[in-house]
Write a protein that binds this DNA or RNA. Structure first.
Lengths: 161, 161
DNA sequence: ATAGATGCAAATATTTTGCCGCCAG
DNA sequence: CTGGCGGCAAAATATTTGCATCTAT
């Protein structure tokens, strides 16, 4: 292995390694946005998830913690976080249907690499990716504010079976 | 400019430059799949579109040509093409809501670069992108079969305004 | 105190399915 | 001829909105 790897592959066990817990709550406070009981629960669910969740899953977990949280509040909270660019909305190549998945927006862009058979998702960072963004920015004369890369294929484990 | 550019930027005027017209129809014939009157119309709409269309837009245009085409047939045809990997389903970063957009699957992967204000979408190809895919394939031990990159930002024209 | 958030129910929007008659090969 | 296909209507799913009430600050 090289001494200074040009990339980093996550374990796939935890998705929100990008920001410390409580990050979303602090961001909302800083913006003078009300932290209701329901929002605290929903943010906690999103921050502690070990895999990407869709709206229904977020609702399910939040509802268990606080049984009078409704799907409507989940949708409105997701919307709030999207508007403030605190979370990203992913579709993970529609491998699991047309649901949307959410993750807190980290400081560094990363690529989602999903197995089309077992559905495992890894996250991948690479200098090459950042170079590519610079090239696009220059050659398309665009000020990039959001980027998303999703890759699907058969992982090693599934090929072995 | 270098003699052999490492990338290519499309004009943004035409999306289906990747395959010759009639490509989808030929692919279906080759697979012994029935070419009904409705399918011909829908394929033609998709192949001649100058920008990415969602299901409702495909229906609208197909319906104008053949007024007894229904949305159901459009959805079923899209599904057929997806199953046979003849089209890709894009969400273009949800810049225009949660609709899905479709384009015929070309021989070379490309990046969609969208302006978040005017909505213009350009396509971008790059050697760097192919290198990145090789790196992912190697380092994640995955046999990549589908990849999608979407980038959003303010284009030069919109920054000038 | 009060602007803004929630809950409920209903409205929208989008996509899928069952069933039967029809047509491409 | 016949198995797959399209049309219709209805169902299933997903998300948004109006409005009265409540609550975080």
């Amino acid at each position: 292995m090289s001494a200074t790897p040009a990339h980093r592959v996550s374990t796939g066990e935890r998705i929100n390694v990008h920001e410390p817990p409580g990050h979303l709550q602090r961001e909302l406070s800083a913006r003078r946005i009300r932290l209701t009981r329901q929002r605290r629960v929903i943010l906690q669910v999103m921050e502690t998830a070990r895999r990407h969740l869709d709206a229904a899953e977020i609702f399910g977990r939040a509802h268990k913690i606080d049984s009078n949280i409704t799907p409507v509040t989940v949708y409105r909270t997701i919307d709030l976080l999207k508007r403030h660019r605190l979370i990203d909305e992913l579709d993970l190549l529609h491998l699991r249907g047309d649901r949307h998945y959410y993750e807190s927006h980290g400081p560094r862009d990363h690529i989602h690499v999903a197995c089309i058979r077992c559905g495992k998702v890894r996250e991948f960072e690479s200098q090459l990716y950042e170079d590519l963004m610079k090239q696009i920015s220059r050659d398309c004369n665009i000020e990039i504010s959001v980027a998303r890369t999703e890759v699907g294929g058969l992982c090693g484990d599934c090929r072995a079976k």
